[in-house]
Design a protein around this nucleic acid. Sequence first.
DNA 1: ATACTAGTTCAACGATTGTTGAAATTCAAA
DNA 2: TTTGAATTTCAACAATCGTTGAACTAGTAT
Lengths: 213, 213
Amino acid sequence: MAKVTHPTRERILDAAEALFAQKGYEGVSVRQIMSRAEADVSLAYYHFKSKRDLFDQVMLRRAEILNEVRLEALDAVESRHPDDAPTVEEIIAAFTQPLLELLASDHEKWTHYFQLIAQVNSSPEWGGELMTRYFDPLVKRFIEALRAALPDCDDEDLYWSYHFLSGALTLTFAETGRIDNLSGGACKSSDMSSIKERMPAFIAAGFRQLCTK
Amino acid sequence: MAKVTHPTRERILDAAEALFAQKGYEGVSVRQIMSRAEADVSLAYYHFKSKRDLFDQVMLRRAEILNEVRLEALDAVESRHPDDAPTVEEIIAAFTQPLLELLASDHEKWTHYFQLIAQVNSSPEWGGELMTRYFDPLVKRFIEALRAALPDCDDEDLYWSYHFLSGALTLTFAETGRIDNLSGGACKSSDMSSIKERMPAFIAAGFRQLCTK
DNA sequence: ATACTAGTTCAACGATTGTTGAAATTCAAA
DNA sequence: TTTGAATTTCAACAATCGTTGAACTAGTAT
């Protein structure tokens, strides 16, 4: 299933991903990317149409993987409930747990990607369009699952709840070091087990509060 | 109390704020800023030391105001509870309500500022340091108030809960249009009364879930 | 050996970047 | 009216930007 892609192309994507995540799209030059990829500048324009195309391919590469594993996780939860609906916690966990597993498989690269996503998500220029383009079909499936777990919930409450989830999630996985500073070291951005224990519970409680009764 | 500042300086700050919010620090040139401010390029370096200094002053200008009004809101809530502790909802509302009031006073400029904050907050390069620099003292006061409202809560749960709040809050006030797209128009990013009704309830429920017992 | 293609290198383009020094202007104080 | 400081304009600097065309190499198929 894994596509056969050129190794140089992958190196360029990795370098671009890391640098875009750190400094943002405009904060990085094609030359910096190609220097990190240890390849000539013009190779960027052999493998990609433009800087913007390179950025889009960075976004797309892991979005496909992420959507796939999240979908599997949701399917798994639903097949465990052939009759009744899964709980809110189970659905939220199916939404977040795959991120933790991907991080465990290759922390560095996936961290870069999640940092990039966090910045894209909160950018007024790109947030609305790009997140929609890459993640909407999957997100809509999750929202449908949540609707089933929360009968009598109206759409507005559901969408706003998901929006709050989205903000909390993207910031948390961006590992900005903010919580490390704020807590004086008591909490660590990179402490994934802390996140796993707390985020689904916190978010599920919010959903229930807003979407019940 | 309002400082006497040069009108040109304010115009530059407004222009920079709007453009930084839209395209990010590196996505905007000093020339673009000064063009929007309708002033000569070199005036930027008369009123500010550098592009980076201009950025810092953009951040600082409204941070001072924001910290002030939030502190007043927290004081007001606490003085309404001379004996017992305020509820979690009241504290969260004191944290979010001032943003709504500032938006009501000058929607355009404060929206730009909140968009900027959202991007800074989720940037791995700046998020940790800048948010700490500009908002830590106030945030720590809110966390102390929350601790009083949530006895037996340990620090880790408290800090992680605040972190989730921070992500949800900054994304929501960035008005990226994401929820408009996702909901097919059922929800609007700019619908402040929807936010007012839902965010404190959602967040407070999360705090209680994590920080109770 | 020849031809062809995919991959790579080198050098350069016009445009734009942040920044600066000096000259010109404005305007209140002396 | 003259002085002097605050503000603004103009022109330019070296550096870097995204992008491109032409030449070169490597490897495969004829």
